[in-house]
């Protein structure tokens, strides 16, 4: 099947089995390897991308379902200009080993579009689908809360 979608602002088309996981199409066909596979079953959130703005687990999305959609990956989040959440994560120490970090940035960016000044608990709800084993989440929560608060941006 030829699947056409907008990926990070560019129109792309991929000849692929329609049930291929969006994650595999991104990583293998489009060589966008910033989205990571931590579990392959929608638990860890390392593969989080946005489809028409909404964060989803790309390991659970058959690529046929993004035909005609806008897909944003971590490669598109910081381009052309670094996103505020990326800057804040850097300044607050929200990234350690970094494997969950792209997914966290995608979830956080979606939250901040709806709610630019979230409470800590709102951030925790928004990031509950992104497992992180390094940070204990506190610095991630601080970064997302502070991302648009001025200073870090």
């Amino acid at each position: 099947m030829i699947v056409r979608f907008n990926c990070n602002g560019s129109d792309v088309q991929v000849d692929t089995p329609p049930m291929a996981r969006l994650l595999d199409v991104l990583r293998e066909d489009l060589r966008l390897v910033g989205s990571k596979e931590g579990c392959g079953e929608g638990e860890c959130g390392a593969c989080t991308v946005r489809i028409d703005g909404a964060p989803v687990m790309s390991c659970l999305v058959p690529v046929a379902q993004v035909d005609g959609c806008r897909v944003q990956t971590i490669e598109g989040l910081g381009s052309p200009a670094t996103h505020a959440v990326q800057t804040a994560m850097l300044m607050f120490g929200g990234a350690q080993c970094g494997i969950c970090t792209p997914g966290i940035c995608m979830s956080a960016a979606a939250l901040l579009e709806e709610n630019p000044h979230p409470t800590a608990e709102a951030v925790r709800v928004a990031l509950a689908g992104n497992l992180c084993r390094c940070t204990g989440y506190q610095k991630v929560v601080d970064a997302v809360c502070g991302a648009l608060a001025g200073g870090a941006s």
Partner: peptide, 12 residues
């Protein structure tokens, strides 16, 4: 900021 931070944050 950590040295490897921006590469990790941008998926590079």
């Amino acid at each position: 900021p950590r040295r490897d931070g921006m590469d990790k944050l941008t998926g590079r």
